[in-house]
Design a protein around this nucleic acid. Structure first.
Lengths: 340, 340
DNA sequence: CTGTTAGCGCCTTCAT
DNA sequence: ATGAAGGCGCTAACAG
């Protein structure tokens, strides 16, 4: 689309008789005589003037845009965070260009990230799927501010904002322990570090009660409802069936719920489940689910803040900032008491 | 962020000895001698050349970017569509700038849309909340291609891609009727036309069975789980309690499920529910939910196609194209038979 | 097919 | 505080 002719400084110049430099100064710095200020503003309104962002970016070398890179498998949760991030950034005049990386294999360049880079985004907010890590590292090394969100990867030395996953896992463990559970199981997505940390925290929490988490009670799956369903079924079929399950993310929680429902066991009575992220799901099951939820708002504002800090202070190459925000346990009815 | 120096045509010129025009031609049209083509490509690779999108946009007057305007209240459903739209557009080198309009009141300018317009997006894909309609109309009138997605508004004469809402409602009605239900209720969000159409279709479907939809069995709410919950509770409390419910979107379905669960009535036995959009929810309830689902993929590809059609054929102002895609009923266990 | 040239609209020295 | 001038990198005439 060739753009409908919009007015430019020249038009304002024609109406005001001022020079382009003065007009530019008005729209940027300020320092203009009140009389001229009024004249420019008046003309701008009359003309419906909008600055041309391309000319501006060409000249100044920035885009006022940050790229958002999402993994191939999205959850409603991450979108709620992104929407909030967008609001924060928009308040600063920054737009977000969103691209979701297909499930590309760990290649050195993902088409999604490529689009963002070719658009010269000023920074990148990424939920870094392992496949994107090499390319993201490279971008970061090239000097583009990168903030990891939600997920996290050991090879990616960027700022990051995530849940305090270890603590969340421990929280879950304690809750189950407090309810008398000893034979507990975990269904874990182990594609990304975040999930593994949740498991580690869970194991640690269980350990403080003097219990060793039975390795055969740990099912590792890959971001998939179906896998989680299968894994849960298998665990439910064990002779020494666990009395409680911990599931470390939305998909896995859903898979587990389906398997449990199908098994005929009653949640919160015959079997306990402590889920993750599944805010809506938690309300629809019967009984409701006890889950761990993430602080969406805080994750978003922290992410936005880290990014704007970078944008406002270009070239500063400090050590990665790591923010770990606490999760919260929302009680439902899916945890029964297990005494023995 | 002032951008790390990237190479330009001049650098390629230095390495190849060719003129800027030839280089430009190579990167656009083609028509260059094989020898020169190779030289340019080689130099580009050596230099890690990336075209500067700002210079290009400034010169050509387009942005290769479409804006995506989302309403304040999002569902996982709409995101899955947007992700797919992004993939389609990215394949054509087009990026998406996303902004979500706060729940602003029906003012003439929404900050979110404003951001998109100030960025000179080539087109706008919008889930038009009523509050955005005036501003969207204006943009459309100004010549910016607008495609409405999912939602739809009578005052907005743009292309639109939505579910065939009327038909979906009728589908729901028939299903309930086929199962013997006569005393049916609907909980409807009536903020947007799409939902009202679903109700109209439902009423029509019920009518073909010779049944008048009891007006007092229709609850109108405003995009809110809590309202839907209250409304459902109220309906459940009626002396002449409906035997089946139709809920017209995700939030309303969730609210109804919660209310039903709480009532102690058993889904699919004591009470039937036909939900909407709640794909995940449908699997987590017990029994599973019978729902109407939307063709996510097709909605996305149609939306992308309509948009690219506009972009490839600027200035053509045909009549709005209206695409209505059929919904599909996914059977679950929440519909019981009601004979009387 | 290739080269020369003239901007696109804005920002930024550098003078005044 | 204002003005004049140059150029960011690219494309689109127009010549050759």
């Amino acid at each position: 689309v060739r753009h409908r002719q919009t007015s430019t400084y020249k038009d304002i110049q024609r109406l005001t008789g001022l020079s382009l430099a003065t007009i530019s100064k008005h729209f940027n710095g300020g320092g203009v005589l009140p009389k001229n200020r009024a004249a420019i503003e008046g003309a701008a309104v009359d003309l419906g003037y909008r600055p041309n962002p391309f000319a501006r970016s060409l000249r100044r070398g920035d885009s006022q845009t940050v790229g958002v890179l999402l993994p191939s498998l999205q959850s409603a949760f991450i979108f709620s965070v992104i929407v909030e991030v967008e609001r924060c950034l928009r308040a600063q005049g920054i737009g977000i260009l969103v691209a979701s990386s297909g499930g590309t294999d760990r290649t050195s360049s993902s088409p999604a990230l490529d689009l963002l880079l070719s658009r010269r985004v000023d920074g990148i907010i990424a939920v870094p799927s392992p496949a994107d890590v090499p390319a993201l590292s490279e971008a970061s090394r090239a000097g583009i501010p990168v903030v990891s969100l939600d997920w996290w990867h050991p090879d990616l030395a960027t700022d990051s904002v995530t849940l305090d996953n270890f603590d969340a896992g421990r929280l879950a463990a304690r809750h189950l322990i407090d309810h008398g559970h000893r034979n507990v199981a975990a269904v874990v997505d182990d594609l990304v570090s975040s999930m593994r940390e949740r498991l580690d925290g869970f194991a640690a929490g269980v350990a403080t009660a003097g219990i060793d988490l039975d390795p055969t009670n740990i099912a590792r799956v890959r971001l998939s409802v179906a896998d989680a369903y299968d894994a849960t079924r298998a665990l439910l079929a064990r002779v020494d069936r666990p009395t409680a399950f911990f599931t470390t993310n939305y998909d896995v929680t859903l898979g587990a719920v389906i398997a449990i429902n199908e098994s005929g066991l009653r949640l919160g009575r015959d079997i306990s489940l402590l889920g993750f992220d599944a805010t809506d799901l938690a309300l629809a099951t019967r009984p409701t689910l006890t889950i761990i939820v993430q602080p969406v708002e805080e994750l978003a504002t922290e992410t936005a803040r880290l990014m704007t800090d970078h944008l406002n202070d270009p070239g500063s190459r400090h050590d990665p900032v790591v923010r770990r925000l606490p999760g919260r346990l929302v009680p439902g009815g899916s945890i029964g008491d297990a005494y023995r």
